[in-house]
Structures are given as C-alpha cells and as structure tokens.
Simulated assay, not measured.
Amino acid sequence: MEKDKQPVNRKYTKRALLLIEIQNDYFYKGKMELEGSYEAAYKAKKVLEIFRKKRKPVVHIQHIAASKNDSHFISGTFGAQIFEDVVPIKGEKVFIKYHSNSFYGTGLLEYLEQNGIRHLTIAGMKDNMLVDSTVNTAKDLGFVVDLVSIS
C-alpha cells in the first residue's frame, strides 16, 4: 500500500465539518424550495453548534450559478446567500462552487491538505445529487467521511 493510501485512524485524525449548499433558494419563497428544508437546516445547525463548541474547523460550500440565466443561486441575490441558521462566522472557510462536486475547481482539497484535515463530517441539501458527488470524491481521495443525513 502506498504511504498516502494508508488506512486512516479515525481517533487521531483532524476533523472538519463540511456544510453543502444550505442556501436561501431552498427555503420558503426561494427559487427552488425543498420540502423539509427548515427541518434540514435545524439538524445542520445542531451539528454546526457541536463543531463550534469543540472549536473544530467548519467549511461552508456555497453554490453560485454559472450563468445569470440559471433558475437559482444567482450571484448577488438573496437566494444565493447561506441560510441564516448556519451562516458562517469569523474564521470559518467559505468556498464558492459552480458544479455539483464541492472539490471541483474550489480549492477545497488544497485547504484540507494544508490544514491536515483527513476526516470529514458532511451535511448538505439535496443528498442524492450534490452531497453524493462530494462524498464519493472525498472517499476516493482517501478521506474518512461521516455523512449526516439532514434532508
């Protein structure tokens, strides 16, 4: 086994929370309102509070539409903003993404590597599409992943 492909010991790895696309367009009067969005945000907020209390790294992934002709997450709009219950605070990293995978073109991998993070707790909206692609990539890259189902 290659050195960088060694199994990761969960107990001794640095862990971060990755919150994916918990943005206003998924909520009431948003351009892509999801059923259960408020319950999902509540669950994400509880996980976020645990990470903040333990002073663990938190990373927010914010999707911005690649084109102003897209239906939601248009740059500069209220709908594209991160939902108020999980809004980033000082010291929390925010990455903007334009594709479904949070690693693609964002600098996320470099950030995690630079900070020695090898264990991710991931929660986000639209598990079947957006979260899955990020979880699969994280596992392919050798991260230990805990998926928190919020939606």
Rank of each mutant, 00 (worst) to 15 (best):
T77K: 00
A41H: 01
H63Y: 13
K126G: 00
I61Y: 03
Y26F: 15
V86E: 04
R52L: 03
A123Q: 09
F103Y: 09
A138H: 03
I22G: 00
N101D: 15
Q6Y: 08
S37D: 03
A80Q: 07
H99R: 15
K14F: 05
K14V: 08
I64L: 13
R15G: 01
V94E: 12
K97H: 14
D140Y: 10
D25P: 00
K53E: 13
A65H: 06
Y28S: 07
L120H: 04
T137K: 10
E84K: 11
H99S: 15
Y38T: 02
K11T: 11
K3C: 02
G76W: 00
N101G: 09
V144Y: 09
T106H: 10
L112N: 04
I82W: 01
K45P: 00
L147W: 11
K97I: 12
V47K: 07
N101M: 12
K56D: 03
I89Y: 08
V135R: 03
Y26R: 04
P88E: 12
L120V: 13
Q6D: 13
E113W: 02
S100L: 14
I20R: 05
Y38L: 01
M1K: 09
P7I: 08
I74L: 14
D132L: 14
K46H: 05
I122R: 01
G116F: 03
L18A: 06
Q23F: 02
F143K: 04
V8R: 14
E92Q: 15
G30A: 02
S149H: 13
H63Q: 13
K53M: 11
N9E: 07
L17F: 08
G107M: 08
Y111H: 14
